[in-house]
Simulated scan of single mutants.
Amino acid sequence: MDAPKSHAIAVAQGVAVIDDVDQNLATLDGLVASAAEQGADVVVTPELFATGYAPDRAWKHDGAAIRVALAAIARSHGIGLVASSVDTVGPAHHISASFFSPEGEELSRVHKRHLFGGVEQEYMTPAAAYGEPVNWNGTSWGVGICYDVEFPEFARSLSVAGADILLVPTAVPRVEEGIEGLGDAWHYSATQISTLQVPARALENGVVIAYANQCGPGFTGRSCIATPFGHNAVLLSDGPGVSVAQVRTEAIARSRIINSYLFDLGSQS
């Protein structure tokens, strides 16, 4: 019988500058270095950080060259790295996320399935399906991007396929909207994705979710690591930072006994 696994997972958030790839990669390198210094085995970084989040411009940069640079960052710090770039396939541009090993090997690259807003939908092409989990360091990992996690089908699909931990780069715009005269119960804040929606996805699917956001003007920050018990083990503020959570696979397994959603879904279908 295999011994239980433990992983130190980090989320990193920072401020990116649109079109300044060199500066953004330098910022990313500093964040990854901080995660490695804190003992992380793997770190998740924000969506389209290397180019800055501007889908109408990000595709103009060399995504392949950016991925070479990202692999070098993972290798230089000896840490697993999840980072986002544009993957151009023929005429199609995809928002992608790559999972690099500590040796700089690209273990997985997935495309964003659910595009957010008119600009993404105009300039990017959605994936036809969610990515498949990848086995690394004795655990099954799934990767998605930003808006994907806001749909129940994403976490359910990956968990049914065997994923234990989901790694999600994101770039959530700041939104505060309410209905006048109806009180707080009728107010929406985009910070609820981190504080409510991501922990709910983790709970209902028996998975850990590491969700790394951009911060600074126009973004919510609040990167988080949610446990399958429906709580955030890590929740950053709205400024730059890195934080690490210890994840034990035996605790994930126990959560699926307490809340047997996945087993009951399969046994009653």
Rank of each mutant, 00 (worst) to 15 (best):
H7Y: 08
A10G: 06
A12P: 03
G14S: 13
V17N: 05
D20N: 10
L28C: 00
A33R: 11
P46T: 02
E47G: 06
L48Q: 03
F49Q: 03
F49R: 01
A54T: 02
D56M: 05
R57L: 15
A58M: 05
W59M: 10
W59C: 03
G63M: 13
A65S: 14
I66W: 04
A72L: 11
R75P: 11
V82D: 07
A83E: 13
P91N: 08
I95L: 12
F99D: 05
P102M: 10
E103R: 07
V110G: 04
H114M: 10
L115M: 10
E120W: 08
M124Y: 03
A127W: 02
A129L: 12
Y130A: 04
E132W: 07
P133A: 10
P133K: 08
V134D: 08
T139P: 02
W141Y: 14
G142C: 11
I145T: 00
C146N: 06
D148P: 00
D148V: 08
E150N: 09
P152Y: 12
F154R: 04
F154H: 04
S159F: 01
A161C: 10
G162A: 10
D164I: 06
L166T: 03
V168R: 03
T170Y: 08
A171I: 03
R174M: 15
I179A: 13
G181D: 11
G183P: 02
I193K: 02
V198Y: 04
E204S: 13
E204Q: 13
G206P: 05
G206V: 07
V207W: 01
A210G: 08
Q214L: 15
G216H: 05
P217W: 13
F219M: 08
R222L: 12
A226Q: 02
T227D: 10
P228S: 11
L235R: 02
L235V: 09
L235I: 12
S237Y: 10
D238C: 11
G239R: 06
G239W: 05
P240R: 09
V242G: 06
R248Q: 14
R248V: 12
R248F: 11
I252K: 00
I252H: 01
R256F: 12
I258L: 15
N259K: 05
N259W: 09
D264W: 13
S267F: 14
S267Y: 10
Q268G: 06
